[in-house]
Design a protein around this nucleic acid. Structure first.
Lengths: 165, 165
DNA sequence: GGTCGGTGCTTCGAAGTCGAAGCATGTGGT
DNA sequence: ACCACATGCTTCGACTTCGAAGCACCGACC
C-alpha cells in the first residue's frame, strides 16, 4: 500500500521541529538581550561582530558580508545604512574597484560589540549550553558542522524536488 | 590585560553558530518549496499543519495556535486573516466564551497541506537527514529535545544575567 | 577604442512582523 | 449588582525584509 503520507519517521521529524523551535527561541532571546543592552538587532550584531572580530583590518566588502550572513543584498544595504547612521561603521568606495563598497567598523562600533558580548554569551550559555550535559554541546557541534557544509554546498533550489539525487 | 571577552570556548561558540546557520538556511529552503508548490509561507504552513495534523477536530483557539508557533498575537491575527481569505480556514466566536475565536481548517486547507507535505519532507530529508550519517539524526533529536524543554521552561527575560550588571 | 555581458550596490514598492493601545467579554471581590 | 481587573483578540503605526528593476563600473573580445 502506498502510504502517501511522507517518508520521514517520527525521529527525523522530531529532530527537524526541535531544530527549528530551538533556533527560533534562541534567536528571540538573543535578540532581546542585544536590543536591551546595546540597541542592536541580531543582524546588526552579526555584521559588527564579523567586522570587529573576524576581520584583521576591521573592514569587508558588502558582498562578503552578505555571504557570511544569510541575507538579501538589499537588506544588507539597509542595515549597513543604519549602522553608518549610528556611527558604528563607515562606508567607502574601493580604490581598485569603484563598484565595491568597503565597510569598516569604527572605534565606537568595536566598543559597542564589547558592551554587548558578555551578555550575549551569557544568554547562549544559560539557554543552550546549560541544557546540555557535559559533552553534549560538543556532540551538537560535531553533528551540525557537516549539515552546514552540506547545505552550503547543495543547490538552493531545483534539486530539492522529485526523485533524483 | 584581563581577557574579559566571553567565556565560551570555541566548541560552544561553534555549536551556537552552526545551530543558527543551519536553522536559518533550512528555513529558507523550506520556505521556497512551500511558496512554489503551495503558495504558503512557513508560518502559514505551520498553522495549517497544526490544525490538520495535530488536532483531533481540526480546530484551535487563537491563543493555543500562538503558543505553539513562536509568534506575536498580532502577527497571528494577520496570518489567520490571510488563510481565511484564501479559504483554508474559518473563524468563529466560541459559544462558551465570546472572547475566544476558534479557527478551523477547511477541507481545502487539509488538501493544501496534503499537496505540499511530500515536497516539504523531501527538502528536510535532502537538506538535513541526508547530511547526517546513520544514527546522527537520532542523536540530534536526543540532544535538542532537552534544550527545547529547558528553553520553554526558562524565563524569557531578566534571568539572562546573574553576576555582573 | 567601443560595445557587451557580468558584477556590486542601491532604490523602490509590496509584504510581513512586532509592541502598544484599544475593544469586548469574562471573573472575582465587596 | 457593582466595580475593578484579567483575558482574548484586533487595530494601528513603525520598522524590517525581500525581489525586481536600475545604475555604475569592470573586463573581455571584436
Amino acid at each position: 500500500m502506498p502510504s502517501d503520507p511522507p517518508r520521514l519517521d517520527p525521529v527525523q521529524l522530531g529532530a527537524y521541529f526541535a531544530l527549528m523551535d530551538v533556533a527560533g527561541m534562541l534567536r528571540h532571546r538573543v535578540e532581546q538581550q542585544l536590543k536591551e543592552e546595546g540597541d542592536l538587532s541580531y543582524v546588526q550584531f552579526q555584521l559588527l561582530a564579523r567586522l570587529a572580530l573576524d576581520s584583521t583590518d576591521g573592514s569587508a566588502r558588502m558582498t562578503d558580508l552578505a555571504d557570511g550572513v544569510v541575507y538579501s543584498r538589499s537588506g544588507l544595504t539597509y542595515q549597513v545604512g543604519l549602522l553608518e547612521k549610528a556611527g558604528l561603521v563607515t562606508r567607502a568606495a574601493s580604490q581598485e574597484d569603484e563598484r565595491v563598497v568597503v565597510v569598516t567598523v569604527t572605534e565606537e562600533g568595536r566598543s559597542r560589540v564589547r558592551t554587548v558580548l558578555p551578555g550575549h554569551v551569557d544568554v547562549v550559555r544559560d539557554q543552550l549550553v546549560a541544557a546540555l550535559p557535559g559533552a553534549g554541546i560538543g556532540q551538537l557541534a560535531d553533528l551540525l558542522a557537516p549539515v552546514r557544509d552540506h547545505m552550503r554546498a547543495a543547490p538552493p533550489r531545483s534539486a530539492a524536488t522529485r526523485r533524483g539525487r
